[in-house]
Simulated assay, not measured.
Amino acid sequence: MDLNCVGVFMDRDGTVSKEIGYVNHASRYELLPRTSLAIKKLNQAGIKALLATNQAGVARGYFKEEMIGEVHAKLERLLAQEDAYLDEIYYCHHHPDVGEGKFNKNCNCRKPKPGMLLQGAEEFDLDLNKSYMVGDKISDVETARRVGAKGILVLTGYGRGNYENDRDSWEVKPDYVAEDLHDAVEWILSHLEKRDQ
């Protein structure tokens, strides 16, 4: 299989980084253990590593949009220290019910709507049927399902609590439940190898 057409979309808070609620200052932002190693493995395999994150704190007035850029600059610096990188960062700063002006919008990019994945597929010529979405909420899995991608739930962030308390009521089921992003990437690489046989 040509891995150039494969993308791994990752949620941010609770998946790539620690879940601390709304990140209203870059100093509060910290990667989870093994995140850099996981993303580096994607880089080395030639698989696109893409962030897809809802950031409605802007619409809610908790911080200005510039803060998202500052946090993502820190994220990229932290990854670079371990020779890892993201191919692109997508974020949705909209909310359908709160906010003013351009931020108050019923958009197609707020997960579980698939707009960020569709944008990534278009920009990088990805086959979403061969791609993956990793996140700590079942809505991330639902986002994957809407475009035919595989959805992986990580037990970091909100994942473990959601899995233990809510899974019987889920309308969609994860393709895999991973301890963390690194575990998810290991499963993805193994899954791709099996697909190729």
Score class of each variant (00 low, 15 high):
R145A: 10
V58E: 09
V147F: 15
L75H: 14
A49L: 10
T143N: 14
I89W: 15
H95N: 09
E70T: 15
L42W: 11
T143I: 12
P112T: 00
N43Q: 05
I152Q: 01
D83R: 06
I89A: 15
Q81W: 01
G99T: 13
P114F: 02
A73E: 12
F63D: 07
N129D: 07
H93K: 14
A149F: 04
D87P: 02
A73T: 12
G159V: 05
L75E: 11
R146K: 11
D125S: 15
P96E: 11
E142S: 12
I138Y: 14
L155G: 03
E123V: 03
F63I: 00
F63K: 05
V134E: 14
A52K: 06
G101Y: 12
S139T: 13
L78H: 01
A121I: 02
A73F: 10
R60P: 05
V71H: 11
Q55W: 01
G159F: 05
V71C: 08
Y132L: 12
V141E: 11
H93M: 06
L117K: 01
D136E: 11
R145Y: 13
E100P: 01
N129H: 14
N106Q: 13
A80G: 09
A149D: 07
E100H: 11
T143A: 15
N43K: 12
E70G: 07
E142R: 08
G46E: 02
L78D: 14
E123Y: 01
E122W: 00
G57W: 00
L78I: 04
G135T: 11
N43I: 05
K113F: 03
V98C: 07
L126D: 06
N43H: 05
Y90P: 12
A80K: 10
Y132V: 02
F103I: 00
D97G: 13
R110D: 09
A45D: 09
N129T: 12
K111C: 00
R110C: 04
E142K: 05
T53F: 12
A149L: 03
L50E: 05
K113M: 09
G69F: 15
G69R: 14
I89M: 15
E88P: 00
G151S: 05
G46D: 06
A149S: 15
Y62C: 00
A52Y: 11
A84S: 01
Y85K: 14
A121F: 01
K48R: 12
G120Y: 04
L86D: 13
T53W: 10
V71L: 05
E76S: 13
G159R: 09
G115H: 02
D127R: 04
D97A: 14
K102I: 13
Y85H: 13
R160C: 00
F103H: 08
V58Y: 02
L42G: 03
D140A: 03
N129E: 13
R145V: 06
L50F: 07
